[in-house]
Measured scan of single mutants.
Amino acid sequence: MDVFMKGLSKAKEGVVAAAEKTKQGVAEAAGKTKEGVLYVGSKTKEGVVHGVATVAEKTKEQVTNVGGAVVTGVTAVAQKTVEGAGSIAAATGFVKKDQLGKNEEGAPQEGILEDMPVDPDNEAYEMPSEEGYQDYEPEA
Rank of each mutant, 00 (worst) to 15 (best):
K34M: 03
K58R: 11
K43D: 00
G106R: 06
K6M: 06
V3Y: 02
G101F: 15
V118C: 12
T92F: 15
E126V: 09
G51N: 05
E28P: 01
Q24F: 15
T81R: 02
K97R: 12
E57D: 06
V74Y: 14
A76V: 10
Q134N: 08
D115Y: 09
K60F: 13
G132F: 13
A85Q: 02
Y39P: 00
G67S: 08
E13M: 08
Q134C: 10
T72H: 14
V40H: 02
E57C: 03
G73D: 02
E130V: 15
E131W: 06
V26R: 00
G51E: 01
S9H: 08
V95N: 08
L8V: 04
K43L: 13
G31A: 09
V118P: 13
V77G: 03
K60D: 00
S42E: 12
V66E: 01
G73F: 11
A27T: 03
G73C: 14
T72D: 12
M127W: 05
E104K: 09
A140I: 07
Y39H: 05
G86D: 04
Q24T: 12
K32W: 15
T44H: 01
K60T: 06
A140C: 15
V95H: 14
E104Q: 07
K45N: 01
A19D: 00
F94Y: 09
A90D: 06
D119H: 12
Y39Q: 05
Q134M: 14
N122F: 06
S87Y: 11
E20Q: 08
A90M: 08
D98V: 03
G132I: 11
S129P: 10
H50S: 10
T81V: 15
S9D: 03
Y136E: 03
T64R: 08
L113Q: 12
V26K: 00
Y133C: 08
K34E: 00
V15N: 00
G106F: 09
S129I: 06
G132E: 07
V118R: 12
E131F: 12
N65T: 07
A124E: 13
G31E: 07
E20W: 08
V52R: 01
K23V: 05
Y39S: 05
D121K: 12
E114R: 10
Q134T: 03
T72P: 02
E35H: 06
A56W: 13
E137W: 07
V52T: 01
H50R: 12
A124P: 08
A30R: 02
T81F: 14
G51S: 03
T75Y: 11
V82K: 06
S42M: 09
